[in-house]
């Protein structure tokens, strides 16, 4: 195992993919706990589709992809948040509309532009897509996400558990929601090309669900999700390297496996506690 890792980091593009991927996994897991518990998980999925559309347009116009995608997805995040706060049922279909709409725009733009070959890379991810610049931005954003999470941990908990109570104690819950949505948007954009637009939302949802099977305290869930997410990413990348599998999909498969293991462990713990 150690030898394989050593072999992997001898390729500079693979090192970059590992750095960016593990940082994105970490951030996605932290944000994911809140998103899943607040029932905003679909926003993550919607955002990745918007990101795909923006990415296709950016490359058609020959622009720096991150400069176009990050603002577009952040704006979409505010928008989706607004919709889901106003009414639950309408919000659900609105997210589906925006997702499929952006996907359609992306596919049409990409095919008109004659870059059909890239399409599968966009949709399912490619480890070759991570540039030096991505790496730097990714490190910076991850530091911000982790710092915000630590400094605002108690406030994030309060908002996740009971937004009305938090608001009644004078917290500007709307501002926190916007910050969480914006950070989610940026995390998704950074991880999108590596993991694939169709697969990136799994990084938000799987780790927190896995952690919730086993842990019943909020701080354990957060730490568990973060650790699980990073471990699954490394395991997935290693499997992808050894068996020449697509990287994004391998990471998702490992996450699925982890969820299954956590579900079994969780039910065993429950049974032991009852006795």
């Amino acid at each position: 195992m150690f030898q394989i890792l050593q072999e992997m980091i001898s390729y500079s593009f693979l090192t970059r993919a590992l750095v960016v991927g593990s940082l994105v996994s970490l951030c996605a897991a932290l944000l994911g706990v809140t998103l899943v518990l607040k029932k905003y998980a679909m926003i993550g999925d919607g955002l990745s589709h918007v990101g795909f559309g923006a990415l296709a347009v950016a490359s058609a116009l020959n622009m720096q992809p991150l400069y176009v995608t990050i603002p577009v997805v952040v704006i979409a995040a505010f928008f989706l948040l607004r919709i889901s706060e106003n009414s639950a049922i309408k919000g659900d279909s609105a997210i589906a509309l925006i997702s499929s709409g952006s996907l359609a725009i992306g596919v049409v733009v990409a095919s008109v532009n004659g870059t059909n070959t890239d399409l599968s890379n966009y949709l399912f991810g490619s480890i070759l897509s991570v540039s030096k610049k991505d790496e730097i931005i990714c490190i910076a954003v991850s530091i911000v996400v982790v710092l915000i999470y630590i400094l605002f941990y108690h406030r994030i908990f309060a908002i996740t558990f009971d937004e009305n109570f938090a608001k009644a104690t004078g917290l500007h819950t709307q501002a926190y929601n916007v910050v969480i949505a914006a950070l989610t948007a940026i995390t998704i954009v950074l991880g999108m090309r590596l993991m694939g637009t169709l697969l990136i939302s799994s990084l938000i949802i799987f780790p927190s669900l896995s952690a919730m099977r086993v842990f019943k305290h909020f701080h354990f869930v957060v730490i568990g999700a973060a650790v699980c997410s990073v471990l699954c990413f490394f395991a997935g990348m290693t499997a992808s390297y050894c068996y020449e599998l697509p990287s994004g999909a391998s990471v998702v498969l490992v996450n699925m496996f982890a969820l299954a293991v956590c579900a079994v462990v969780g039910s065993i713990i429950n049974r032991l506690k009852k006795h």
């Binding site: 518990l37 908990f157 558990f161 842990f215 019943k216 305290h217 909020f218 701080h219 869930v221």
Partner: peptide
């Protein structure tokens, strides 16, 4: 909700 009584 996964939280301990004390956390809440």
């Amino acid at each position: 909700f996964p939280a301990s009584v004390y956390e809440i």
